[in-house]
Amino acid sequence: MSDNNERRVVSVIVVNEASVLSRITDLFSGRGYNITSLTVAPIPESKYSRLTIVTSGSVRVIEQITKQLHKLIPVLRVYEHEDLVEKEMAMVKFPASENIADISTLCAAYNGKIVNVGENVIIVMVADEPKRIENFLKIIKRYSPKEIVRSGAVALER
C-alpha cells in the first residue's frame, strides 16, 4: 500500500451540541491526523451541524479517520468525498493607494469583487476552488495586501 499523503475532503454531520467540535479536533490531535482546514455551521432547520474537514494522509490513515469519526457518539454521518464541488472564500485588505481597477479585474476573474472601500483601505472577496484561491493570493502579492483571511473549504458531493 502506498503511503503517499493525499489531500482529502471529509464532511461530517454531527449533533449540534456542546463540545462536539472538541470531540472532533481532539480525535485528530490525539491520533496524529492533520487538519488543513475545518469549517462548521448548523444545518438549517435541523439539530445537526455540518463540518467540512480538509485533511491529508495515506489511504489507510484516511480510512481510519472516517472510521474513528464515525465512532464518536454524536456523529451521524461521514462522507469521504470522491467527486465533489469545492469552494472556499478569501478576503483581502489592500492599501487604497494600489491600482483599484487592476485589483477589481483580478477579483472578477476569481469570482469576486470589491466589498468595501474606505479612506485608507479597500477590502475584496473572492470565492472559488481552493487551488484557485491559492493562485489568486499568489498573484495579488504585487498589490501589497495588508491582511488576508481564508474561510477554509466547503464541499458538496456532485
Partner: peptide, 16 residues
C-alpha cells in the same frame, strides 16, 4: 473534567 475524560472514555456528559 469532561475536557480531560474526552480522550479516555467512550463518551462523556456534562449535565446542565
Amino acid at each position: 473534567a469532561v475536557g480531560i475524560s474526552r480522550s479516555c472514555t467512550k463518551h462523556n456528559y456534562l449535565v446542565t
